[in-house]
Design a protein around this nucleic acid. Structure first.
Lengths: 374, 374
DNA sequence: CTGTTAGCGCATTCAT
DNA sequence: ATGAATGCGCTAACAG
């Protein structure tokens, strides 16, 4: 069944023989080496092109030949070597993702969605984490470039140096920034509309009749935090209420102190808005500790919903970021950029959703667990 | 500075010229193409071998030449193409990870640790999710093989068909199973010691004087669940107490019903042990709803610690799986297997840790948030 | 319809 | 110390 090839010259003859021998040796002595397209071709008595055609859709191949080749492929458990294919195609079918931490549910959700879309498009997802350190992020970017990933999904570091921005700017790979923009840059991005989300939450509290609303922030320098505070200020100003912002709250003790002070003032606060989920837990624990009742004495809303926020009693109202939508939009955008390299950078701002629960004054019984299945 | 190469034959001459022209064209018309080792060589006036040497450690190269080459590399922003390197080396410096869901904190932690170790060893981590479906897992495995990953870290599907086991068995890539073993197989694995963990928790309740301890399970068929129940039975039997196991609890309603029944029996239970974290939340909510006091009326311990377990009042005692240790052990084991392909399969059972909190009868005040920083 | 062949970018022998 | 030549596995011209 194997057609003999007529050697064209002594040289190619000896080479072919050597090669043949080597292969035979390999496959008999150890099964460590994988079979190649040539092994398949030889065993099926066809040329490599034909095998290649069979692998890639099987058009233009006689049905009987195709069957024979497919048979050999199964026999040999032949798997095409994607590295070789990449080398030829200049496409690796690979997407790189950089997040600060994969253990953060927000980023995990994004990674999950990204992976789903990649799979559907027959790409693989390379995961890496930066711990929000610019240096590490740069290094990962370099490695991704060496791997020639076809696209990049990255959460930029919270503080971006000029060097970093320059590096991103001259990136040859299509890239989409997630959660934070590339500062002052023409690179695509998909973000939560932090400002609008916070303004909404503020208005919600105002509608509940709250007049003195305290806004608690960890690091006011960060882009996300700045935006959130902007939203708060916007809504408060529009309602002609007093601005009460407290920044640089990093520990439970600080939160507790600020809270007690603001509550014992001659004109005490009647609501608290936290710019992230750690803060809201600090506040919640402090209130619990001092027996301050939610929502009668104080209303409370946090940023970033978390598991069990609805299980706690009283349940905590939160602004839920649209993590899935962000992941989906970013990944789809990335693929469209990969297909059309010239398109101008898109910037998406996706809306958040306020989840009212007991703590904000909405007396929604929160039947979180009913219907859930293990 | 560029040394002329003397063409050896008309043929190679025309080829070299063509090539040269092509390159020139590319780099002038569009900067889409990346520079190769040959561009660097030409610009530095050296051979590709020398460049290659400079890239890989720079030994055996004259210092001045090295500097010159390094300079050109920077100028051109040359990045070695790892696909090409893989083709030559037969190693991709790539590790594949398959987990059911990356949004599960347990798996996210494992992924995080795995990624750290990979980075340290100059490998990249390819992430994929199986949703615990065998078919999907098989497909991912096939893709990983095509990418020629150097090693595989996988959480096998909960139910493994014979076909799946065979496939894994003949895998040419070193692989470590996480969380679940490959059934009846010689493949390496790193697992929580579920049996021991559950036995410990049971003994803990017994030491607290509990006599009628109910064990709640979701799907008793699954390996992990079986092991946990075994641990419970072991400890209960050793103490000559009554075995009270209830399986197939999948919803909050079922949990509630079972609980109320067991509490209103003539000989009511005085403790509940849940075989997973969803169950413990079901139970917790049911108890809350019916005003049953923890831990006076009933003691409660769950399996798998979760964020906020210590923040709830009363705080929930849990068995904490050593997720980080599992990830670390599995990844390190994998790398050692990658370096020594012949070593016989290792099976590691890592101990869990019981985190006593109010719900089990230990009146530990749980200062979870003190000292934490945003 | 099918086979031959030339690279893709790199590391590596083997000369020098 | 350095370079020319070769081939890793695959795809795509280009012939037949």
């Amino acid at each position: 069944m194997v057609r003999r090839q007529v050697p064209l010259s002594p040289r190619s003859c000896s080479l072919a023989l050597e090669f043949h021998l080597l292969r035979r040796l390999r496959s008999s002595v150890r099964d460590d080496t994988r079979s190649t397209i040539r092994d398949v071709a030889r065993l099926a008595g066809v040329g490599t092109t034909t095998v290649s055609r069979v692998i890639n859709g099987g058009q233009l191949v006689a049905p009987d030949v195709r069957l024979r080749v497919e048979d050999v492929i199964r026999q040999l458990r032949y798997q095409p070597n994607l590295a070789a294919r990449s080398l030829k195609n200049e496409r690796t079918r690979t997407v790189g993702l950089i997040v600060p931490r994969i253990t953060d549910p927000f980023y995990a959700t994004i990674a999950s969605v990204a992976q789903d879309i990649c799979r559907a498009r027959e790409h693989i997802l390379i995961l890496s984490t930066s711990l929000d350190m610019e240096e590490q992020e740069l290094q990962e970017l370099r490695i991704f470039e060496q791997h020639r990933v076809d696209g990049l999904l990255i959460v930029p570091p919270k503080k971006q140096s000029v060097a970093f921005q320059e590096y991103c700017h001259q990136l040859r790979t299509p890239a989409v920034a997630i959660d934070l923009p590339f500062e002052q840059d023409g690179l695509a991005s998909v973000l939560t509309d932090n400002r609008e989300a916070m303004a909404n939450a503020t208005r919600h509290l105002i509608e509940h009749g709250r007049k003195r609303i305290l806004c608690l922030v960890s690091d006011p320098v960060l882009y996300t935090m700045r935006e959130r505070v902007r939203g708060y200020i916007e809504a408060i100003t529009a309602a002609a209420l007093p601005l009460l912002v407290e920044g640089e709250i990093h520990t439970a003790a600080q939160a507790e102190q600020v809270l007690l002070f603001a509550l014992s003032a001659p004109d005490p606060i009647d609501a608290v808005l936290c710019a992230n989920s750690t803060l809201v837990i600090f506040v919640y624990e402090a209130l619990q500790k001092h027996g301050i009742r939610l929502p009668t004495q104080l209303a409370l809303i946090g940023f970033d919903d978390f598991h069990l926020a609805g299980t706690l009693r009283p349940a905590i109202a939160n602004i839920a970021q649209p993590a899935e939508e962000i992941g989906r939009a970013a990944t789809n955008l990335l693929f469209s950029m990969m297909n059309d390299r010239q398109q101008s950078p898109v910037h998406l701002h996706l809306p958040s959703r306020l989840i009212p629960r007991e703590s904000c004054g909405c007396l929604t019984a929160d039947p979180i667990s009913s219907g859930r299945v293990v």
